[in-house]
Every structure is written in structure tokens, then in C-alpha cells.
Nucleic acid binder design. Structure first.
Lengths: 235, 235
DNA sequence: TCAAAAGTGTTATATGTACACCCATGC
DNA sequence: GCATGGGTGTACATATAACACTTTTGA
């Protein structure tokens, strides 16, 4: 007889995401402020990550997309599983585990919508995450995601998923500098990236003052092979 | 009102582990053969990873250790979360998700014990994993672990957790060669490893024929800093 | 005394790093 | 015409890769 039927109590499974977006040479993360008036919900007025319960018959990824694309209106460009958090006391109500995901979007045209469960929704730059209290262990999840971002950009070309179809080398560089502890040399960075043959020049456009910028597109085929094989930036 | 209380049906959470051990210049993984006579249990006679349900109030890691150390008698030297598998149909009975872990042990003195749920327990070398059917998605979990192993050895010194207190450079090299697709140059490998100042020579012993071997120990402090900062082997 | 295992050194090549200069634009 | 942002090239330092010879033992 299976022990699984009797032993453990019901466990709630939620899927929460840390989403990264890029704009104006900065990386942003959306956070949602939970409602104040409780109704049994813990952590009133705290900041939280977008997420919710895993529904019957739904994959983790589908749950992510349902929440992010349908509820919040973000188009996901890149999605990977981050980590599963399950400390016994992380939810004061019941045993609850959170399968967390890590996502990139292109900067959306529309502002964030707060949705039913939140009273406020805001993009925060990585260097100005709110210091106020977070719901559950969402602060830890966020920190884990930032760490993963830092590590992963260095050996996979995933940063490209943060950019528009056409982008400048300076924008790509800015993503790295927003995440890494140090500055990179603009010239060496450019040479390195171009050496992968990943980018093809598209147009030259005038942005603000200064010399016009070369825009690039990236090649999906080469992207995928670099994604598999790995590359290396900035050592 | 919380939607979490009504919406999803009960989800079973299990914690499964892929364990790596090193012996005789080869890497091994323990697999367990499930019993034949069913009793409601699916996948009779299939190979499976050690694991079981997450109990109330127990962390994932504690569940791993309970299963591996208490039930199977292995002493875990290194443990990290691998991935969480949750395809809706992975368990024919109910919705079930598996939080999987990745572990290293030192080669145990005692043989594997099969435990209650298994009719056979065996160590398999990585290049001779059984081709027969696996329970659930355990084959996929195993493959994910091997991939992770391959990637992670290159930039973290975790391989040392597979070895005894004292070990030879040839043993360390063999771990890398068992996992990587290619051979490494013995001389360059040795220079590289020694350059980290991670190893201190202990004794010189005669093994079989040939010149006696220098044994080393590793420095826990330096290990930890390399673990944090990362290193790089074999590029 | 020979073969197996292990230790040590040198050199060419590739890669990374640190730079300085020129170009095209908006103000 | 000058400050700003962007493009390109070169010399130097460092890391990796390829490779050969010697040492010490057991059989």
C-alpha cells in the first residue's frame, strides 16, 4: 500500500516569477504590493513577485505564462526555472512550496496592471529594490534570481532577449554593466561579441547627440548554438 | 477570499536524488529496481532514483538526507537542488511533482541496501546506465543531473567531494575525464589545479606498478572561496 | 630490464587587457 | 566648434595547448 496517500498533508504549490526588463540603460524588475485589507491573506501591504497557484493539469511554464501574459500583459521572451523554495514555515497558513521562474521580457508599451490581488504594481531598477517588507520569502527568491542573472549572462547569450529586434552595442553593454560588479571596456566588449558572429548589422540611426549608432539584429541559429555550447564574456 | 483553498486538487510532492560516487576511475550512480507485484504502485520492475514523499514540516534537504543517509546508508558530502519536475502526466495516479537533488558521496564501505520499496539496488557506471524502462521521468532527471555535473565541474571545485581525504591527481583527473566529452592533458591539468593553491601534498604512496603517487588533501577555506568565486578547468 | 605510472619543463599560440585616436552628429 | 557618443586598431601581458623527457617502481 502506498504510503503517499496517507502520510503528508496537503501541500500548496505556487509558481512565482522574477521578471527582468531593460530600459534606459537600466534593468528593472516588477513588484506588486499586496492589498491591505487582508481577508485572510497574509503579508498585507508587502511587496511580492507575480505568481499564483499551479492549476490542475497545468505545467509550471504554463502557469507562469498564464499569470504573466494573461494577467499582467507581458510578453515573455525567455523563461527558465530558477529554484524551488519550500521552507516549512514560509507560508504562515499551510505548507506551501514555490517553484520559481526567471524570465526576460522586452520592454512593454503599456504600463503594468496591478491585477486583482495587488493594490500597486511598479517596475523597480535593480539598484533601488524597495527596502520595505516582502511577502513570504520573495526577497530571497528575487536575490536568487539576480545572482543567477549575474552568473548566466557571462556564459550564455540570453541577455539578447531583453532587447528589441534592433539594438545597439551600447545597449547590450549596458545590460552587462547593470548586472556585473565592474565596468567593462566598451571596445573589448564589442570585439568579443562580434567575434561570435552572432550579430548582423542592420541600420545606422541617430539617437541623441553624438555619432549615430550602428544597430544590430541577432541570428537565431547562432544564438541557439551559443546557448547550447556556452560562450564567455568578460571572463 | 483566497483562491488557493478551493482551486487546485491535492498535489503530491516527492524529493528524488541523483547521487554520484567515484571508484576505480569511474563515476557511478545508484539505481533501484521497483518491486514487481504492484499493490497499486505504478512502474513495476522499473529502475528508479532514490526518493520519496516530502513529510510535514520537513525541508527538501532533510527529506533527501532522511532517505539517503537513514534508508540507504550513504553519507552525503555535497547536496544541491537540481530541478523540479512537474509534467501533469508524470505520475499516472495523481498530480505529483518531484523536487530533485544532486548529491556526491565518498565511496561507501558497505554495499547498497535495497530498502523496502525496491527489489534490487545497484551502482551503475555513467557509461552503462541500464537501457530498460525507468519509473516516472527518472531517466530525464538522471540525464539532467549528468548535464549539470558536466557543466558544474568546470567552474566549481565540487568534484573533490567525491574523493577520500587523501587522493591523487590522477583520481581527480579521472573524475573530469569520466564526465567530459574529451580527454584532458594530464600535465596541464595538474598545473592548473595546483595553481589554485587548493591542494596540499600529504604523503607519497606506492599503488600498483609504476612510480609512487603523491597524495593531496584540499584546504576547506580555499575550497569555499573557489566555490563562491568560481574557477575554470579545461575551458 | 622493461613497461607502467607519475613528475617536471619549454615553447608556440590564442586570448584578454589596456590603451589612444578618429568620426559624425546635435547643440 | 566643441562636447558627446560611437567606431576602430595596436602593443603588451597572460593563459592555454601542445608536446618530450626523466624518475621510480613492480613484475
Amino acid at each position: 500500500m502506498s504510503s503517499r496517500i496517507t502520510l503528508p498533508k496537503k501541500i500548496f504549490v505556487s509558481v512565482d516569477s522574477v521578471i527582468f526588463g531593460y530600459r534606459d540603460r537600466q534593468l528593472f524588475v516588477p513588484l506588486f504590493r499586496r492589498r491591505v485589507q487582508g481577508g485572510g491573506e497574509p503579508f498585507p501591504d508587502c511587496w511580492s513577485l507575480p505568481g499564483g497557484p499551479l492549476l490542475d493539469g497545468e505545467t509550471f511554464e504554463a502557469a507562469c505564462r498564464r499569470k504573466l501574459e494573461e494577467d499582467i500583459g507581458l510578453k515573455i521572451e525567455y523563461l527558465e526555472q530558477l529554484y524551488t523554495f519550500g521552507a516549512p514555515e514560509r507560508d504562515p497558513r499551510d505548507r506551501a512550496i514555490s517553484v520559481s521562474y526567471f524570465a526576460f521580457i522586452r520592454w512593454p508599451e503599456n504600463p503594468l496592471v496591478a491585477g486583482r490581488d495587488a493594490r500597486e504594481a511598479r517596475w523597480f531598477p535593480l539598484d533601488a529594490i524597495p527596502t520595505g517588507p516582502f511577502a513570504f520569502d520573495h526577497r530571497e527568491i528575487l536575490d536568487t534570481a539576480i545572482q543567477r542573472l549575474r552568473g548566466k549572462l557571462l556564459y550564455q547569450p540570453i541577455g539578447l532577449n531583453l532587447l528589441d529586434d534592433e539594438f545597439s552595442m551600447a545597449d547590450l553593454l549596458a545590460i552587462y554593466e547593470a548586472v556585473l560588479p565592474r565596468k567593462l571596456d566598451r571596445r573589448n566588449f564589442s570585439k568579443k561579441i562580434l567575434s561570435f558572429k552572432l550579430l548582423t548589422p542592420s541600420r545606422v540611426v541617430a539617437r541623441a547627440r553624438g555619432r549615430p549608432t550602428q544597430l544590430f539584429r541577432f541570428d537565431r541559429k547562432i544564438y541557439q548554438s551559443l546557448q547550447r555550447e556556452g560562450f564567455s564574456i568578460g571572463t
